[in-house]
Design a protein around this nucleic acid. Sequence first.
DNA 1: CAGAAGATCATCT
DNA 2: GATGATCTTCTGT
Length: 201
Amino acid sequence: MRPLARAFYARPVLVVARDVIGCILVHDTAEGRVAGQVVEAEAYGQEDPGSHAFRGRTPRTAPMFERPGHAYVYFTYGMHFCFNIVCEREGVAGAVLIRAVEPLEGIELMRARRGPVADRDLARGPARLTQAFGIARAENRSDLTRAPLHLAPGERLPVQDVVETPRIGLGRSQDGRRWRFAVRDNRWVSGPRRLQDSSTD
DNA sequence: CAGAAGATCATCT
DNA sequence: GATGATCTTCTGT
């Protein structure tokens, strides 16, 4: 299937975060192909105190300000990578963190990369996902509109199966809005266990 | 240059 | 529910 075009990403983060649910994330490497359907994502906009880019452009956050349709991969907690898709127009910081996918292809490879864990946990959680997909520092700024790492259109999930959850977490930097979109009651969603049913659209 | 915090996860009680 | 792992990045002095 054809990768999503750049126009898909060049929109507000909240719109992309919703629309990316159901899309297929694909990564081709020498080890093989892995693919999965996005079931959970989180939007980080320019105005969000919880966003890395809230206090402006730094070497680390520069990708968030650059052209939409590229990857922003960052390293955190001394051991984990997280994968974001850069949105908005160039010059406006915005990214959508991909938090969980349902494995569809290359499950054996995911198992090999993740070690002895339940299949349900292969890509449930942003750092587990990058492990399963072989996404690391080298994938920062990679172009998502073409192979090897790209998104393809997927099943159109009903809007009522998506919830928005502002203000997840406890820390100071969590005070901002962290809009999380997830497929309700989906077993591949990472959490929290209870998503507030705060709204629809 | 020191210090703190971090878009997390696995493991333990 | 709590904690440790592990190290990068940013901030303040």
